[in-house]
């Protein structure tokens, strides 16, 4: 990566690691209207690791995740206070363009949501609007290979993405995000709409992807968190209850509420 000198506080040299974390939140509060969905969340996400956020429905985990690349702003009633630091820049600073933030912090959603375009175009589109000038066929092939979808679709790249199965669509959505070469991939329950086999494929994929990307995955499937993540955060009613190495959190929880949740007493 090219090392360009910093010209102002919104331009950051790529590759410089000012912070120990890929992403860090400080006193993050998120409201929907008058009700607070996330309370004073302060946590850091390690580089090139998979961090899982678990918790029962309504605990604010998805809300928190969606605030990391300012996707919450698409909801009219949502309001965010506090800081989300990416390369030392608070993404909520008034001078920051959310469009630029999202280009570096990609996202995969709960339900596969490919565009109503061809498979090829689903991947090429994002790169094109972001000014990619290289070889699109190469980019498409490379991105599809990264998500182990290439062999399944290489003969029907011109066909509509809707012709794929749900699991293939979701891998296409991951390929689409990966094609932009983001630094962070946010995944909001990416396998909750998929069958067990497709789920396993995506989980295998995460191991591969974390060599290059920082992955933050929200899941309400605790087994999944245990299988795929290096660090796990447990949230409850908008609070971060416990945040530790995954093994530590599952085998040796410090907080009683964490223990109750992971042992299936509620949630």
């Amino acid at each position: 990566m090219q090392h360009t000198p910093t010209t102002d506080r919104f331009e950051v040299a790529l590759g410089s690691e000012e912070s120990a974390y890929a992403l860090e939140t400080r006193n993050l509060n998120i409201y929907y209207g008058d009700s607070r969905a996330v309370n004073e969340l302060s946590m850091g996400f390690d580089r090139r690791k998979v961090t899982a956020i678990i918790g029962p429905s309504g605990c604010g985990k998805s809300t928190a995740l969606r605030s990391f690349n300012r996707m919450n702003e698409l909801i009219a009633s949502a309001r965010t206070e506090g800081e989300v630091l990416f390369h030392g820049v608070n993404v909520y600073d008034p001078g920051v363009d959310p469009v630029q933030v999202r280009r570096w912090i990609g996202m995969v959603f709960q339900k596969p949501n490919p565009f109503s375009k061809s498979i090829h175009e689903n991947i090429a589109w994002g790169a094109r609007i972001n000014g990619y000038t290289g070889d699109f066929d190469e980019l498409v092939e490379d991105s599809l290979k990264r998500v182990a979808l290439w062999d399944e679709v290489k003969d029907k790249l011109k066909e509509s993405a809707y012709a794929l199965s749900g699991g293939q669509q979701q891998r296409l959505c991951i390929a689409r995000a990966v094609a932009l070469k983001p630094e962070i991939l946010l995944m909001d329950e990416p396998t909750s709409a998929l069958d067990p086999i497709s789920t396993a494929k995506i989980e295998d994929l995460l191991d591969e992807l974390k060599k290059q990307y920082t992955i933050i995955i929200v899941t309400h499937n605790m087994q999944q968190a245990g299988r795929v993540s290096d660090r796990t955060a447990f949230m409850l009613l908008g609070d971060l209850v416990e945040y530790a190495d995954t093994k530590e959190l599952f085998f040796n929880p410090r907080d009683e509420r964490t223990e109750n949740y992971i042992s299936g007493r509620f949630g």
């Binding site: 698409l74 999202r102 990609g106 959603f109 565009f115």
Partner: peptide, 17 residues
């Protein structure tokens, strides 16, 4: 569906795009 809008925004698309 709103999910398509989200998908586009999440890829760094502007509102016009």
């Amino acid at each position: 569906p709103g999910s398509l809008r989200e998908a586009a925004y999440a890829m760094g698309a502007t509102k016009l795009e």
